[in-house]
Design a protein around this nucleic acid. Structure first.
Lengths: 228, 228
DNA sequence: GGGTTGTTCAAACGTTCGTTTAAATCGTAC
DNA sequence: GTACGATTTAAACGAACGTTTGAACAACCC
């Protein structure tokens, strides 16, 4: 059952092993991560079995525990693999914006925040992965969310606060938090028209989301005061 | 193991049966629904076992299948039990608004939409239940979402369209959909400050959500044209 | 009373779960 | 070539899963 037939029938499985040639260890771990990511997205964490991951990756069942310790550890690794680079890029772009523009507008800040959703390498999976993470019970999701998003959220919240000095910090935090909800929702579920996952990250969708978010965050007063 | 000790120690369990006195059937089904609802909220659908539900409800394991056919059927029943009354009330209130006000504003319409979140009898559980439902894989959630929310969503979308005749229908649908995301997010997760579940439905939270939604839906042009 | 219907019960069905084990196999350094 | 650490393997662990079964039980009609 667990020995795949000699004919590797599709691209889903890891390369068929030439007899006697071992695979570099990194490949097994990478294959597990990739398969786990896809399945977590499609079925959720509780709905995905380690066996299904191992089968999809074309590796032995025990390899998942060997490399990642446990199913929960595997989830953490999958999340971190995708989220960390995207967040680093987010911060890098915000740094650049603040360097080039003395008083960046809310729209500019949010554009940076959303732009990473369309990054190559993360765009194909990250958004839905995040959305799924938020859908898990809080005991699973909360520690990971804080670990992965805590710092970057505070960073952007501070930048928005600087762009809107008249808005109370707590009020702003609420609006930011609603905005996150709108984003997660767009990434996770079908829009008003049926969309395939690629469509969900299209320029068009992101532009609409940006427009909505700017209006909500500024409460319909999009222009930052020219001078304070 | 499955026979509870004679001392019914808390309110969680069904009433201890006086020997020889059968319970009306409705009580068993209701106890199952109540327990299932709580567990689906806390652990999600895949994360909840029928055994856990039966134990929490203080009923036999087989009763869940007897009354609801399957675990999926039980989920459907739980969702419908809470959602249907809330949606009926939503439509009733919208009817009343449209009857009393010739051209209701976006804010008035959204206030009606959100107000049912604070209804007695549904407020304690419905919001988190909805949020959890949205977190499940689409194969589980999508049919239920369409069945339970399809009609009422189209109804409110039409009302919003009437209040904003200048806005393209597709654009409005997107904004409505973002708004749903913000709502779900607020109901499901901790806000910018740690909240207990009751806090999530407080007047304060709903007011902030309403403000955000009005700004987003109108794109910062809250006033409907006085006359067209 | 007997028969019928609806419900609850303990027990078990086969399957799948996350995890562990111990042997086999690898590349590499000696 | 042999010893060694790192990795993969087949197999099994006990537990939990959704579901089914058939007997017991309660209440009602006649």
């Amino acid at each position: 059952m667990s020995t795949p037939p000699s004919s590797d029938k599709d691209t889903q499985r890891r390369r068929a092993k030439p007899p006697g040639v071992g695979n570099p260890p990194v490949e097994t771990a990478a294959a597990i991560l990739e398969a786990a990511e896809q399945l977590f997205i499609d079925k959720g964490y509780a709905g995905t079995s380690v066996r299904a991951i191992a089968t999809k990756a074309g590796v032995n069942l025990a390899s998942a525990h060997y490399h990642f310790g446990s199913k929960a550890g595997l989830l953490g690794a999958v999340i971190h693999l995708r989220v960390a680079p995207a967040n680093e890029e987010r911060e890098r772009r915000l740094d650049a914006l603040e360097r080039e523009t003395p008083n960046p507008s809310v729209e500019q800040i949010l554009e940076v925040f959303f732009s990473t959703l369309a990054l190559d390498g993360v765009a194909a999976t990250l958004p839905r992965l995040i959305a799924r993470l938020y859908g898990e019970p809080e005991s699973v999701s909360q520690p990971l969310i804080e670990r992965e998003f805590g710092a970057v959220s505070r960073r952007f919240l501070a930048a928005l606060g600087a762009a809107m000095p008249d808005v109370d910090a707590e009020v702003l935090a609420w609006r930011f938090y609603f905005m996150i909800g709108a984003m997660i929702h767009m990434l996770a579920f079908e829009g008003p028209h049926t969309m395939d996952p690629a469509e969900r990250r299209s320029e068009d969708s992101l532009r609409r989301l940006l427009e909505f978010a700017v209006a909500g965050i500024t409460n319909g007063v999009p222009r930052a005061p020219e001078e304070k």
